[in-house]
Structure formats: C-alpha cells, structure tokens
Amino acid sequence: MPAAAWVVVAVVAVAALVVAVAASRLRALSRRVGSFPCHARSAGNPSAAFALGIAHYAVGRIDWYRCWSLSPRPARTWSRERLVVTGRVPLDQAGQHDQYLVRCRYDGVDFELSMSTAAYAGLASWLEAAPPGRRDLVL
C-alpha cells in the first residue's frame, strides 16, 4: 500500500474516532438526571442562530454544554443567585410548538434561551426554590 493510502486511512480513522467521542459525550450529557435541551444565543440579534446545547442542573448553578464539542467542561455556567429571567415568549407563532424563547440576564449580560415549556417550568421552579430572600428571579 502506498504511503498516501496510509495517510488517507489514518485521517479517516481519526475523523471516525472524533465523531464517536463527540456522539458518546452528547449521549452521556443528554442522559444525565437534570439535563434538558436548551439552545442559547446573545440577546439583541433575533436573526442570529442559536447554539445547540444541553443544560444540566448542578448544585446552585446550571451548566450549559455545546452539543457538538469535545470539551468535558461546560461552555457556560450560570449560578442561581445571579441568573434572572427577564421575559419569555411562546414560539408557537414561529411554528415551534411547545417552545419558549426565554430572555435572561446574568451579571448584566443579556442572552436568550430556547427550551420546551416543560424545561421552562423546571427552570422557573429551580429559580423560585432559591434560598429565602432570592424569590425575585422569575417573571
């Protein structure tokens, strides 16, 4: 076999390994207890695309992971004390049934999340279950 063929085989093998690791990571994240599909984008640009992701409730925080990434660490982490929901809009008019556009603020930075109505109910409950004195977090 010529050397060029070995290079092609090696590149294909490495690509297949990367895809397998990414798919395994995605499956593991989505099967965790307390995980839900949650897509994120910066606020202010409604034409911007959402980054696909999976959010996971942790102790006092939400960790958000990009769907197609190899990183074992979350791309974003929002602590319960500093996360504020500033509004929500049902996306039924946009043809996305059972979805909410949730506007949030974290440390003065506005962003938007897209999630199912059940996931929003869980988020609102999680925020409202904050320790006493922190009940102003949900609209």
Rank of each mutant, 00 (worst) to 15 (best):
Q93V: 14
S116Q: 01
V14I: 13
A119R: 03
V85F: 01
A20W: 10
Q99G: 08
S125C: 12
A119G: 07
S24W: 15
M1Q: 13
G95S: 01
T86F: 01
S69P: 06
P37M: 04
N45I: 08
D136A: 11
A58Q: 10
P90A: 12
T117W: 07
R25W: 02
R88I: 01
A15P: 00
L70W: 01
A43F: 01
D98Q: 01
W78Q: 08
Y120A: 03
G108N: 03
M1F: 11
H97T: 14
G95R: 10
Y120N: 04
A118E: 12
G60Y: 06
P132K: 00
C104H: 07
V33Q: 13
C67H: 02
P37C: 09
D98V: 02
A49W: 12
Y65F: 14
E112N: 09
G87F: 04
A15D: 08
L101Q: 08
S114E: 15
V19Y: 13
L101A: 09
Y65R: 01
A75M: 11
T117Y: 05
A4D: 12
D98G: 05
M1H: 13
A75F: 04
V59D: 06
A130Y: 04
H97D: 05
A119W: 00
A119H: 04
A75V: 10
A13R: 04
V84L: 14
A75S: 12
G44R: 04
L137C: 03
M115Q: 04
L26T: 03
V9Y: 11
S30A: 09
S114N: 10
D110Q: 14
L139K: 11
L101R: 02
V21F: 11
L101P: 02
Q96L: 15
A3S: 13
G34V: 11
L17F: 09
W64I: 05
S30W: 08
V14R: 11
Y57M: 11
G44Y: 13
A3Q: 13
R135H: 14
V102S: 06
S24K: 05
